[in-house]
Design a protein around this nucleic acid. Sequence first.
RNA 1: GGAGGAGUGGCAGAGUGGUCUAAUGCACCGGUUUCGAAAACCGGCAUGGGGUAACCCAUCGUGAGUUCGAAUCUCACCUCCUCCGCCA
Length: 421
Amino acid sequence: MLDIKFIRENKDAVLAGAKKKHLEVDIDKLLQIDEKRRALMAKTESLRAMQNDASKKIPSASPEEKAKLLEQMKPLKEEFQAKEKELQEVEHEWQLLMVQVPNLPDHSVPDGDSDADNQEVRRWGDEYKAQLATPRSHIDIMQTLGMADFERGAKVAGFRGYFLKGDGALLNFAIWRYAQDFFLKKGFVPMVVPSLVRRVNFLGTGYIPQGEEDLYKTQDGDFLAGTAEVATMGYHMNEVLEAKELPIKYLSFSPCFRREAGSHSKDVKGLIRVHEFYKWEQVVLCEASHEESVKLHEWLNGNTEEFIQTLKIPYHTVVNCGGDLGLGQVKKYDIELWVPGEQKYREISSASYFHDFQTRRLNIRYRDAQGAMQYAHSLNSTAIPTPRILVSLIENYQQEDGSIVIPEALRPYFGKDKISK
RNA sequence: GGAGGAGUGGCAGAGUGGUCUAAUGCACCGGUUUCGAAAACCGGCAUGGGGUAACCCAUCGUGAGUUCGAAUCUCACCUCCUCCGCCA
């Protein structure tokens, strides 16, 4: 959410930002409602002031004066109640419009419509790309080596269901434990966070109202989160943080659930796009400074790049174009790993910063050096998702004889240097 | 699942229908004192909104209600605590 004062004073910038993100937003209507809201506020407040004033006089008034005051207040009260109801309705309408206003993208975000227009900013590890004439897909390799079972996955869990099995399951655990050790050296506080969380957390992080169709909902009205970001951001909701404890850095683990509504025909096989997966997520709250946000954004993305480099998996990093940014994001980097079976890069990580867009909705503040309340800034980035990372790992490390070599960095966690039949 | 208790500013905590403009303490900020610090003392200090300003309005878990007037009374919901039951 943006500050209404900012929207009033920077209407053109807000409109330009929405246009860059290819999002529809009716700022004129919002400002019109805002005008109406403020006028009604002034009216109800003055009526209430009159009522408060009369109420104050009553205790010390004589019986005659008291009767007179009560008589005078009758019409006032009716008017007051009518205005207040009207104000309530306008406030509601105002709120609905406010949560639709997108955050402004950074100047450095390229123009573009979709992920096809994202721009490569770094490429690394071409020499580690699988050099086979006809590389096999991870689906083929994993099934042959007994590492995954997709047919029974579909039988048990339905479309996009999967089982990890044998070395597939163990490799998955090895990656978690390696990632844990690697990222904790960077100074994060580790957490295991809920995936089943309340609606307010999704509103706060910006996944609702716009992205509701991609969430699983329970009969109690709660939702299953698609990322640990939701619960981790909710953790400090309605709190005033100590300035000296900033930046707060969490490494959160959780299962993630995504309906993948609207992607029914995409990536229907294998581990690229599944309804249920697991993820270590980096979440940061910092002081309200653009420079600090930018610095930490680069740092978060750098952490994941560094992790991928230790695994020697070829990747490139793209800066997402305006049309590929979410409502609250100021700027986003995606890290995409090379998938030999498809001969293209596929997303593994996403690092974004939001300024105070999320913290304003979640009411997460701190007191600055001058003693004034400030909304903190928030950022988040994938640390590592499983099982998706297995796709590139397995396909790039496949050998001519159908076996897989285990990346050196993982061997202490996996216990073997090779998976073969 | 059953019974009882509680939710008040950054924190602790008083307040049970009208001087609540929310006591008090801690924390924090400024000052006096000091070579400097601690302690002590003095002063300041909730948040949000509207207004050029004086000032006004809202907020005591959330929402509705009763009342001229609600932190205080009623109802619903949320959360926490204690006990009983069940259970990994």
